[in-house]
């Protein structure tokens, strides 16, 4: 189901309804919208505000606080490269540079073809087999420049 088939208002309404009665449901609601649309459109903020009886500023503030929430569409796939210490000890600084170079984008950006967004992450809990990256919900261990390229080629081939 795409966004145009169902109005933004209905998507928000469904997300809010599924968490009705829960304590402090804003995070689950934002997650639900982002899971559905890939991002939380700015236009959805007034709908969320009305449905949850919050101010638009409050929602804006929460969206901005958390690294996960994005208000612009991301790529088809999201790649997170771990920047934390355990991965640093195994060469993640070089891997990070390689990833930017290979994809031709910086952290927080999406490839021009809309295929891949690159994000930093601070620990994936895979610290005994560093360096780690996450592609969507899959984590990859002991990633080298070569294995990174292979993983990217696979994503490009699927496209």
């Amino acid at each position: 189901m795409n966004a145009s088939a169902v109005s933004l208002g209905e998507i928000v309404e469904a997300a809010v309804e599924s968490h009705r009665g829960k304590v402090g449901a804003l995070l689950p609601v934002l997650h639900a919208i982002q899971d559905k649309l890939g991002h939380i459109p700015r236009d959805s903020v007034p709908f969320i505000a009305r449905a949850m009886n919050l101010s638009r500023a409050e929602i804006h503030g929460v969206m901005n606080f958390y690294h996960d929430f994005r208000s612009e569409p991301g790529g088809e796939h999201t790649i997170q490269v771990c920047r934390a210490e355990a991965c640093q000890a195994m060469g993640s600084r070089e891997l990070e540079l390689h990833a930017r170079d290979r994809l031709g984008i910086d952290f927080g950006e999406t490839t021009p073809d809309g295929l891949i967004s690159l994000e930093p992450v601070y620990c994936l809990g895979n610290c005994a087999c560093s360096p780690s990256i996450r592609i969507n919900d899959d984590i990859h261990a002991r990633v080298s420049a070569e294995s990174f390229d292979e993983l990217i080629s696979r994503l490009e081939a699927e496209d």
Binding site: C82, A84, E85, A86, C87, Y122, C123, G125, N126, C127, A128
Partner: peptide
């Protein structure tokens, strides 16, 4: 569990 180098909770 956000500390780098930890995964016991996970």
């Amino acid at each position: 569990e956000g500390d780098s180098g930890t995964f016991a909770d996970r």
